[in-house]
Nucleic acid binder design. Structure first.
Lengths: 225, 225
DNA sequence: TCAAAGCTGTTAATTTTTTGACAGGTCGTG
DNA sequence: CACGACCTGTCAAAAAATTAACAGCTTTGA
């Protein structure tokens, strides 16, 4: 028996580029482009063509030598690889400001992640309607996960409750957690977690801002001589 | 003249870990821990101690051989490196659901990024108050950036307007843009952009979910034999 | 028909990042 | 004091990712 199913032993860096490829390809498709070469696609994403071909090679390639990629074939192929050929039923846990914002963010649906429920413990929030999804009591969560075959949970609860909620989600059969709480979650090996840490993002930006400001100061000093 | 100011020529992967170090250290500080060894800190973050020391080495090291790190010294040192020793004045551009959620997310202030203004073109949103910050007309933006010496803009406008707004921000002297629009922004070399793409995050999660489900299916089949 | 231009899949070379190893320094204890 | 346990800074080795190179296929146009 092989360790991993075909096409699953792929570096993280490549996985993170797949959505970018798909996004750009959908854009091309929308404006009627039929064919696209690795160079065209790569340049529009500011990466090297060889890297794109190398990435695709993990999945066996999507064309044959001599012919550019066909957008109409590439889009569904990537969707299948990413796992969104069929809609991936999802829920939002935590209906605070961020949870509400995400519930209102219709793109999630469009991208293949229909929101099958929003849950919170706060009675004041229960019943609020976001684009058709009504906030329910957290007690209903397990039932909805089961009934709707929910696979992914978007976690926007306060950090202190994140682990407890996670344990419930895992027990209920959730396979992927998109975690917005600034906290490392403990999960079994057969559950995937993706941390979305705002703080990391803005701090890494701050680092670069600091460097830019330092450099420009230095430059000014040099000019003052 | 050297190419880059000291401590700015650091790999991205290291930069992305600095906020994690800082976060964990603040946590330790809060519970009264005074000293921490590279191994303790690294293990709590699920990385290798040698990597942590290697990361710190880019900045000259924060202790001396034989002595563990002192939390009280490390925290301000990292804050200085990241560039948040002094508050980094920031604004939010786009007061839609996501902009509102971020405005309500007090952590930004706490982490060193006080929000000096929220801007939108929609008259219905202007005047809304989020934790003391009132939504203003986009016409006021440049004036506020100038007056408050704003360095970072958090961009939550629709993708179609993102580039136009970016051009205005750059012209007004913004140095860093935290971009939530699903779009690549064109900026001059002396402006830093950090893209926060929800779609990339949830799709990379989806990929792993797909692999987990495939593997478990395979396992079940094997057991059925 | 032939050459030129352009393309992919694939492998090799290069670069970058991570990990390991270790020379010394420090501390607590007997 | 001497020993063992533990520590950091540093550099070398290993692993991983990116980039380059190229064989061979396809189309176009003279």
């Amino acid at each position: 028996m092989r360790k991993q199913k075909k096409g699953c032993d792929v570096p993280d860096a490549t996985i993170l580029r797949l959505p970018l490829y798909l996004e750009k390809l959908k854009l091309l498709q929308a404006i009627g482009v039929e064919d696209v070469s690795s160079r065209q696609l790569a340049e529009s994403l500011d990466i090297k063509a060889s890297q794109l071909r190398h990435d695709f090679h993990y999945f066996g390639g999507f064309s044959r030598p001599g012919r550019p990629y066909q957008v109409a074939k590439l889009v569904p192929a990537l969707e299948k690889i990413i796992g969104i050929a069929e809609p991936v039923h999802s829920i939002i846990v935590g209906a605070g400001h961020l949870g509400q914002a995400l519930a209102n963010y219709q793109n999630l649906d469009v991208q293949g992640f229909p929101i099958k429920g929003i849950f919170d413990v706060n009675p004041k929030l229960i019943g609020l309607d976001f684009r058709g999804a009504v906030v329910q009591d957290m007690d209903e969560m397990e039932a909805v996960i089961d009934k709707e075959a929910v696979k992914i949970a978007i976690l926007t609860v306060p950090a202190v409750h994140a682990q407890a909620v996670t344990d419930r989600l895992v027990a209920a059969g959730i396979v992927g957690i998109f975690n917005f709480a600034p906290m490392d979650l403990k999960v079994p090996a057969n559950v995937a977690v993706r941390n979305e840490r705002m703080a990391v993002g803005i701090m890494s930006l701050s680092f670069k801002v600091k460097c830019i400001l330092q450099n420009s100061e230095e430059k000014e000093e040099a000019e003052d001589l």
